[in-house]
Amino acid sequence: MSSTGLEGRSVVVTGAGSGIGRAAALGFAREGAKVVVADLRRDGAEETVEAIEADGGAARAVVGDLSDQGVVDEVVGTALETFGGLDVLVNNAGIMDRLSAVGDTDDAEWERVVRVNLTAPFLLTRAALPHMLEAGGGAIVFTASEASLRGSAAGAAYTASKHGVVGLVKSLAVMYRDKGIRANAIAPGGTATAIQVEAEPGAHGPGVVGAYAGNIGRISTAEEQAAGILFLASDAASNINGVVLPVDNGWAAV
């Protein structure tokens, strides 16, 4: 039996087609959990499902844009119908901005980043909550960022979206702690993933942020970030609620 208490639990992981999300999905499956793999990219989601099933685990893929309410409903419905409930939600999917300063951030960049990084997790959490409350509890883990702790790690849109994620975590923790719901986040530092930064050459924002790049320290693996997610979702963290856990080799301490 798993010492984490995750065995047999129904877990949703977003952005699970690659990077931290895939590492987390694989980690949950190794602990005996049943995993809904949600991602925008079909090939990535299916590859993660195949890897879990090849190792004897149970997983299902849901493909689509998680800021679309219909996709959100499909994700939650798949967990309920296929695995009998929804015990753990991992709001991991996210995108970077162009490191743009406020004065250089156009409407499209702002709206896209906030929609993916903040609105989509809100929609999915809202859809999952009634089922967790009916079951008597659940764990929700968000992937925040070092940019949720400071202003020097990304552009205006990404920084604001990840600060918003922290606010959402804390609100959930306060509002639902007496209902058996725990909400926490990891705050990754520099991590080796496929996430891309398409900075505008010569723009003000990238030049300023770049000056702080030396504080990042060692680049972590996706598996190291996933370990933080699994811990916060597990019974080992049963009295941890409303916490933002830096997984950053001490960057937050600089």
Rank of each mutant, 00 (worst) to 15 (best):
V247Y: 00
G64K: 09
A128D: 09
G167P: 13
D73A: 14
I229Y: 05
L129C: 07
E81V: 10
S171R: 15
V36K: 01
G27H: 04
A33W: 02
A160I: 12
A233K: 09
M1L: 12
G64P: 02
G70F: 10
G32D: 02
L99G: 06
V116H: 01
V12P: 01
D39F: 02
A203V: 04
V90N: 06
A222Q: 00
D235R: 13
D178H: 11
T48K: 04
R9E: 07
P201A: 03
L172A: 07
S234E: 02
G189Y: 05
R126I: 09
V36S: 00
G189A: 06
S171V: 14
L118S: 08
A128Y: 04
V13T: 08
E74G: 10
R60L: 10
D39A: 10
V35I: 07
A236D: 14
G190K: 14
A156H: 07
G250C: 11
E198P: 06
P246I: 11
A157E: 01
I229Q: 07
S2C: 11
L99F: 12
P121G: 06
A51T: 14
V243W: 13
A16Y: 02
L129D: 06
D43H: 13
G136K: 01
F28V: 07
L133D: 01
I52D: 02
A58L: 11
L86C: 08
Q196P: 04
V13W: 06
R112L: 05
A237S: 06
P130W: 04
N184D: 13
L89E: 05
I219E: 06
R30H: 08
Q196H: 11
E81Q: 11
L129K: 05
A108I: 08
D43V: 15
A185V: 10
G164I: 09
L89T: 10
V88A: 07
I52N: 06
T221C: 03
I219H: 08
W251F: 15
G70C: 12
L89N: 07
A128G: 07
V11M: 06
A211K: 15
D87C: 01
S220I: 08
A128W: 04
A23P: 02
T119A: 14
D248S: 09
G210E: 04
I186V: 12
D97L: 05
A45Q: 01
